[in-house]
Simulated assay, not measured.
Amino acid sequence: MVISRSTIRSNSLTIEYAMGSLAAAALAAVLYAVINGGGVVDAIESIITDALSKTPS
């Protein structure tokens, strides 16, 4: 069986797109977990509270 170079290239690109999509989905899952964790919300609240409690000199 003879496989043409265009078929090999096409299959390689398909695998590359699939791996890129998988990596993007994994990154989105990690970011979702970090954002929904309590640490991020506490940090943002702390920054806002500090900024509002200081009076200009």
Rank of each mutant, 00 (worst) to 15 (best):
A18W: 08
A29N: 11
V34Y: 12
L22K: 15
N36R: 01
L52P: 00
G38Q: 05
V34N: 00
T55R: 04
V34C: 08
S57V: 10
A33C: 11
I8K: 04
S53N: 10
L31R: 13
I47G: 00
A33T: 07
V2S: 12
A18G: 12
A29P: 03
L22Y: 15
D42V: 01
V30M: 04
R5V: 02
I35Y: 07
L27F: 08
S53T: 02
T14R: 14
K54E: 00
R9C: 06
S21G: 10
R9H: 12
L27H: 01
A43V: 00
P56A: 05
L27P: 05
V30H: 03
A23W: 15
A51E: 03
N36Q: 11
A28Y: 08
K54R: 12
T49C: 00
E16F: 11
I8L: 14
Y17I: 11
A51V: 08
I15H: 05
D50Y: 04
V2H: 12
A43Y: 04
A26N: 08
L27A: 09
I47H: 01
V41E: 06
A29M: 02
V30T: 14
L31Q: 14
S46M: 01
S4G: 05
D50T: 04
L52E: 00
I35G: 06
A24C: 04
Y17P: 05
D50F: 05
T55F: 02
A43T: 09
L22C: 10
L31G: 07
Y17G: 10
L27T: 02
A29S: 12
A33G: 03
G20L: 10
N11W: 09
Y32K: 06
G39V: 07
E16V: 14
T7F: 10
E45M: 07
E16L: 14
S46F: 06
L22T: 10
Y17C: 10
I3Y: 07
A25Q: 06
A33N: 14
T55E: 00
D42H: 12
M19P: 01
I8R: 13
A28V: 11
I48K: 01
I44K: 10
N11K: 11
I47N: 08
S10H: 07
L52Y: 02
E45W: 06
M1N: 06
R9N: 12
G39R: 01
A43E: 02
V41S: 09
V34I: 13
A51K: 03
A23D: 09
G38F: 12
S46I: 07
Y17A: 13
L22N: 14
I35M: 09
L31Y: 01
G37D: 09
S46W: 02
V30P: 04
T14S: 14
A25M: 07
A25K: 13
L27V: 13
L52K: 09
N11Q: 11
R9D: 03
I47S: 08
I47Y: 07
S4T: 15
M1W: 06
D50S: 01
L52V: 13
A26P: 02
D50N: 04
K54P: 01
